[in-house]
Simulated scan of single mutants.
Amino acid sequence: MDRIVLIFFILITHGVPAENSSNTISIYAHEEDAVFLPLPEHLLNQTDYVWKKGKEHIATSFRNGSIHIPDLKYRDILNSSHDGSLIIKAQEWGNKDKYSVDVKMNDSLSTIHYFVKVQNHKFIPHAKGPINVSATVGGKCTLPLEDGDYERSKIVKIDWLTKRWAYFAETKTDGVISILEDIYEGKLSSSPEGCLIFNNVRKRNQGVYRACIFLNNGKIFEQMYQVSISDHNYISHAKGPNVEPDFDERTSTDSASDSENIINIHLVTISVLIGVSIFTIVLVTIYRYNIYQHKSNKGKMETMFDPKEYNKTRTNHDTSHLESQTHSQTHSCVTFPATSPTPPMVPLL
């Protein structure tokens, strides 16, 4: 399907239609390729589409991709894409065939005419996989032309497209570039060989790109690119050539390294200050604790050497001992009468 869409896109944008009106689309295709009759964007998401060849009803397609073919002779020839567009099998169409589609919209009928013509160029799709290209933000990114499949001297021009088939630039082997999209003005340039160069690249520039290389022998070679944009000064050499940093890029890299060193110094300084602060807090805590212990011990010593306090404490502690001693002495002493008893009188004889 990608191949069919690309063929249609390239050829419809480079041919001069025999009929040109607001509701006529000219389709150019190689005789060996299928023909893709695309629905205009403003007609998408309608219920059904009635297709005709000349005045003959050949099929009805639907927006879900299904198709109804009433005539048996067309059932092996026609097919529908996912949006209802019509696909005609290769070698089953002729030069200058006319097709049309009727679309009913808001009680009105809209008809689009297709004029199919044979294209002399032969499209050769890229079969080796995308060429990986890497660059850094702010630098340059070159999409190179791959050698081997064609001679550089035979190149007429190179069309550059995005992954979604947006045709945005054209280069030639003399270094001339034509920018077709305003958003790329001042951001693209060409090498003397016709390679496309992105200047001052940004993250949004990464993605898939296509180069359609037109040769003077009627062939169109396709090359695909996978562009990766990095924030760091690392460029992968996985596949295909990459961009060497220029003077401005090296200067910006050196500045970035200096900034990184300054940041590291600041981090070390902050870490040292935090460590000193924690150590100071510990020392102050220990010092205050020692002062508190010293004052507490000093109060105890003053109480110990104060005579009044000492006697009070001594009296309180010795009272029970004295009372016990007095009680013991009271029970152990002998009481004598105050005066001696008068001796008895003995009568004399």
Rank of each mutant, 00 (worst) to 15 (best):
L145D: 05
H113M: 03
N95I: 05
I88F: 05
Q91F: 14
T136V: 12
P130W: 10
N106P: 00
N106T: 00
L78I: 06
Q119P: 03
S85P: 04
L86Q: 06
K140E: 04
S110G: 01
T111Y: 00
G94S: 15
S108C: 05
F115K: 07
D76L: 14
S80T: 12
D147L: 13
V103E: 02
I124K: 09
K117N: 14
H126W: 09
P144E: 06
L109T: 07
D102M: 06
V133F: 04
S81C: 10
P130H: 07
K89A: 13
D76T: 09
Y114T: 02
K128F: 09
D83M: 15
G148M: 13
K98S: 13
N79M: 07
T142Y: 11
I87Q: 10
F115P: 00
I77S: 09
A90C: 08
P144K: 10
V103A: 03
G84E: 07
K104N: 02
A135Q: 02
P125F: 04
S100Q: 10
G139T: 06
D102Q: 12
E92M: 15
L86G: 06
K98Q: 09
F123G: 00
D97L: 09
H121E: 08
A127N: 10
G94R: 13
I77L: 12
S80L: 13
K140C: 10
N106Q: 05
N120A: 10
N120Y: 14
P130R: 11
M105E: 14
F123V: 07
F123D: 01
L78H: 05
D76R: 07
A135Y: 04
Q119M: 11
H121N: 14
I87E: 14
G139Y: 06
H126N: 08
I88R: 03
M105L: 14
H82P: 11
S81R: 10
E146T: 15
H126A: 12
H113F: 08
S85H: 10
